[in-house]
Amino acid sequence: MTRTLLFTALLLTTGSASAANLTVFAAASLTDAFTELGKAFDAKTGNKTAFQFAGSQALRTQLENGARADVYASANTAQYTPLVDQNLVAPGQAFVSNKLTVIAPRNNPRVTRLPDLAVPGVKLVIADKNVPVGDYTRRMLTAIDKSGTYGKDFSARVLKNVVSEEPNVRQVALKVQLGEADAAVVYVTDVTPALKPSVRVIALPTRFNQSARYPIGVLKGSANPEAAQAFVQYVLSPGGQQILKKWGFQAPR
């Protein structure tokens, strides 16, 4: 019994150099793209990659409190740089960029154009201000205010319609998918094939839209720094970029 246990423990600790167990902490918006990318990476390298998807701010808090992971991919620099400053992660490499969009339930006509977001009584769901997409959403609204197209108090009127501030972008999208909210602000990449049938997309003019930059890097506490670095390289490689592009992400700018 003891011998078996010892043997198992030995196996678990040593493993083989070629097949590492990797843990990747990634922004919720990367859920579909990274899941596919991880499978391709594992098939190529023989590693076993596991993902934890959540709002970047939640992942950052977990990492600051000692969570063990090998790679961190955030949806903005604000939730990444503090970890660099604390020497928890290597400086980030931008690997994709993303755009915002407004979605509404397909069978609900209350919001069809951007100015509809400010109509009193509209139920708008956005992400919390600490969530990257929540931060980009507020920047987008400020940009609209500055342009004056819909009046200087547009963002104030829109924010009055916010009925819930969610902890990650997938929860924001879910509220529209379920038909509970009249509209929501998410990334263009969140309008996945699974979501598309139940929502309408209201495009944002380029001059208001925000460019979300995603940094990625190997964590200092990684037990498999080589394999972790290999994952980052794969994400940046043409093969990895091809998968990300397929899920609607754009090349980093």
Binding site: A58, D128, N130, V131, S164, E166, E180
Partner: peptide, 22 residues
Amino acid sequence: FAGSLQGRTRTITLAIYSALES
């Protein structure tokens, strides 16, 4: 079921969850 908005639906437990991240 109720979402999370400060001063309206954000109860103590929801506020703890939200604040933990900032």
